[in-house]
Amino acid sequence: MPETPAGDGPTIGIVGLGRLGSALRAVCRDNGTRVALTATRRRGWAAEAVPDVLVDTSAPEAHPQVLDYCAAHRVPLVACVSNLTDTQWKALEELAGAVPVVRATNLSFAHHLQVRIAEFTAALTTGPFGATTTVRERHPLGKAHRPSATALALADTWAGASGRAVADIADERAGLPVSEHELTHTWDGESLHVRHHVGSWTVPARGALAAAQWARTAPPGLVTMRTVYDELTARNTA
Results as ranks from 00 to 15, higher is better:
Ser148Leu: 07
Arg136Asn: 02
Pro64Cys: 13
Trp158Ala: 06
Leu232Pro: 04
Tyr229Ala: 09
Arg42Ala: 15
Glu94Lys: 15
Thr33Pro: 08
Arg41Ile: 00
Arg216Gly: 01
Ala215Val: 07
Gly127Gln: 10
Cys70Ser: 05
Thr40Val: 02
His73Lys: 07
Glu231Ala: 10
Ala208Glu: 00
Ala161Gln: 10
Phe120Met: 11
Phe129Cys: 04
Glu48Val: 10
Glu172Phe: 11
His73Ser: 00
Arg74Val: 07
Val198Arg: 04
Ala238Asp: 13
Gly142Glu: 01
Arg103Leu: 08
Glu119Pro: 03
Leu183Lys: 02
Gln114Tyr: 01
Val102Asn: 11
Pro140Arg: 07
Pro10Trp: 02
Ala211Asp: 00
Gly130Phe: 01
Trp158Glu: 03
Ala110Gln: 02
Ala205Gly: 05
Ala110Pro: 02
Ala218Leu: 00
Gly32Ala: 10
Ile117Phe: 12
Gly16Lys: 05
Leu17His: 03
Pro51Phe: 06
Gln114Glu: 14
Arg19Asp: 08
Gly189Ser: 06
Ala72Gln: 12
Ala149Lys: 06
Arg42Asp: 13
Glu93Asp: 14
Asp230Trp: 06
Ala153Phe: 04
Cys70His: 00
Ala72Arg: 14
Asn236His: 12
Thr4Ile: 12
Ala72Tyr: 01
Leu154Val: 03
Asp68His: 15
Thr121Arg: 08
Gln65Val: 10
Thr202Met: 00
Ala215Asp: 07
Ala91Asn: 09
His145Phe: 05
His193Glu: 14
Ser82Leu: 06
Pro220Gly: 03
Ala155Cys: 09
Ala26Pro: 02
His139Ser: 01
Glu172Gly: 06
Gly7Cys: 07
Ala39Thr: 03
Pro5Met: 12
Ser200Pro: 03
Arg235Lys: 09
Val81Asn: 05
Leu107Asp: 04
Val27Tyr: 03
Ala174Asn: 04
Ala110Asp: 09
Phe129Asn: 12
Val102Pro: 12
Lys90Tyr: 08
Ser179Asp: 04
Cys28Arg: 00
Thr57Leu: 05
Ser82His: 11
Gln213Pro: 01
Trp45Thr: 14
Arg138Asn: 03
Thr227Ile: 10
Gly16Asp: 05
Val115Asn: 07
Thr217His: 14
Val203Glu: 10
Gly207Asp: 09
Val203Asp: 10
Asp52Gly: 14
Glu93Tyr: 04
Thr134Asp: 03
His63Trp: 10
Pro76Leu: 09
Ala234Phe: 09
Arg173Gly: 09
Asp86Ile: 00
Pro51Arg: 05
Ala71Asn: 03
Ala6Ser: 13
Ala62Thr: 13
Leu192Phe: 13
Tyr229Asp: 09
Glu48Lys: 07
Val198Ile: 14
Val198Glu: 15
Val78Phe: 02
Glu231His: 06
Trp187Leu: 10
Ala208Thr: 04
Trp45Gly: 01
Ser22Gly: 15
Pro51Ile: 06
Gly13Lys: 01
Ala118Ile: 02
Met1Ala: 13
Ala167Tyr: 05
Val223Pro: 02
Glu48Cys: 07
Asp230Asn: 11
Arg195Val: 13
Thr87His: 15
Gln88Thr: 11
Gly127Phe: 03
Ala72Asp: 12
Asp230Tyr: 05
